[in-house]
């Protein structure tokens, strides 16, 4: 199985070119695998490990160490809301509770339609623009329930569109 090696040969070459040691490419490759498969399954971890010549258990421990790697499938939109102290002083806890209620999910859960996963995360270096969240690694800041509801509608529409026209 060499999906990544075949499909992303150029990108992988560029990643390895940055470092004197292949091993340093592991984080970039884990991102690449996550982008391709949506999450890091054992197979995906084995594939990455083989690419950078490390043991699969090492790839696994690195994947488990960082919050941005996911060893479980997530919703199509992975919403990570910062509820750390500076944001919480500006209403982030309440915002998170309201968001969970609006999407009808538990803390850390995924909506029944599989579209949204919600999680609390630590400071994202955007404390002056709270409440804020990260959706699939892009920031959305200075939020309130009105703005987030509008974004959620956009994401739902996008998901509909993606189903209607896959690969678009």
């Amino acid at each position: 199985m060499a999906v990544l090696a075949d499909k992303y040969a150029d990108r992988i070459e560029k990643i390895f070119a940055k470092y004197p040691d292949k091993r340093s490419g592991i984080m970039d490759l884990l991102y690449l695998a996550q982008e391709e498969y949506g999450w890091l399954s054992e197979d995906a971890l084995r594939e990455v490990a083989a690419l950078c010549d490390v043991d699969p258990t090492q790839a696994q421990s690195i994947a488990g160490f960082y919050t941005m790697f996911s060893e479980k499938p997530k919703g199509k939109y992975w919403l990570q809301v910062c509820t750390d102290l500076p944001c919480a002083l500006r209403g982030a806890d309440q915002f998170y509770r309201d968001l969970c209620e609006y999407l009808d999910v538990e803390d850390g859960g995924t909506t029944e339609d599989g579209l949204f996963t919600v999680e609390q995360v630590m400071c994202l270096a955007a404390c002056d623009r709270a409440p804020m969240l990260q959706c699939n690694f892009h920031y959305h800041e200075n939020l309130d329930m009105d703005t987030i509801k509008a974004l959620i509608e956009q994401w739902r529409a996008q998901a509909q569109h993606d189903i209607a026209e896959p690969g678009d």
């Binding site: 102290l85 500076p86 630590m122 400071c123 270096a125 955007a126 404390c127």
Partner: peptide
């Protein structure tokens, strides 16, 4: 790496 709660200058 800028991750200290309350820090957003390096960004």
């Amino acid at each position: 790496d800028e991750s200290e709660p309350g820090t957003f200058k390096d960004r």
